[in-house]
């Protein structure tokens, strides 16, 4: 089976700093691939490469086996890749519907088609089983988890095949984190290929199918989420112990 999205031998440098070196990764539909690593491991660069913010120096990005050039976020979206960054890019003063469709408003003639937008918003939020008090309140009034839900829901509007989530649980409380992780599972059920960038090992073990570990730009290994222990992952992330050797990272 051909993967939904493939990175083949991808490298990226910023000046003298090698952010990613010769990385190979595959993500399938109906799958959550988590990417973990310490600060500076290259996680955000990887997210940038997938979402068209950065272009690789070497190597290829393939979608369904076809090489693609993701030169901008817009180009990535056209190829069916949507990204939700740490910075949610929501306008606090606009309500949920306005934010969901910002930049892609439905209009009949010169006037906005509020009815169809509001209907689509409800359908989408229902599918995600997202709890939002109203789609007509400014997002400033929503909780952090709800805001993140709205940002993720907006990424889904173009019906992308691949969704890249960059640190989706950062700065969230326990309940809100659970809310977002449930949402990630629902994305998998909907048939998306999900790339979950995170530094929280508990989070990725909760929802991921496979876990890729990055350290200093190198892909250290891929682990099966079911069978891998936290210690294995910590060891791989920090490099304190040889990967897959088990034992404690001190």
């Amino acid at each position: 089976m051909t993967a939904a999205i493939t990175l083949a031998g991808v490298s990226k440098s910023f000046g003298a700093a090698q952010a990613l070196v010769d990385v190979d990764l595959e993500v399938n539909t109906h799958e959550v691939l988590a990417v973990v690593g310490d600060n500076g491991a290259g996680k955000s660069t990887l997210a940038g490469l997938l979402s068209g913010v950065h272009t690789p120096d070497r190597g290829q990005v393939r979608i369904d086996g076809e090489p693609v050039h993701l030169t901008s976020p817009a180009a990535a979206r056209r190829e069916g890749i949507a990204a939700v960054f740490q910075e949610l890019a929501l306008c606090d003063n606009l309500d949920v519907v306005e934010n969901l469709f910002l930049g892609h408003e439905a209009a009949a003639g010169i006037f906005l088609d509020e009815v169809s937008m509001e209907r689509q918003a409800w359908e989408l939020l229902d599918q995600l089983a997202a709890r939002v008090p109203s789609v007509r309140v400014p997002v400033a009034a929503l909780s952090g988890g709800q805001r993140r839900t709205i940002a993720i829901a907006r990424a889904l509007l173009g019906d992308p095949r691949v969704i890249v989530l960059d640190e989706p649980t950062t700065a969230l409380g326990i309940r809100q984190t659970a809310q977002v992780l449930t949402l990630v599972e629902r994305l998998r059920e909907r048939g998306h290929a999900v790339v979950l960038i995170s530094h929280s090992i508990t989070d990725v073990q909760a929802v991921a199918d496979r876990i890729a570990v990055l350290r200093l730009g190198h892909l250290i290994g891929e682990f099966d989420a079911e069978t891998t222990t936290t210690e294995d992952l910590l060891g791989a992330i920090t490099g304190a112990v040889a990967p897959r050797a088990g034992g404690r990272a001190s």
Partner: peptide, 18 residues
């Protein structure tokens, strides 16, 4: 809508494609 969006959050509007 774009006027209000840009006034609310310049960068978010840019990222949203406004």
């Amino acid at each position: 809508r774009h006027v209000r969006a840009v006034g609310g959050d310049h960068r978010a509007s840019l990222l949203a494609g406004v």
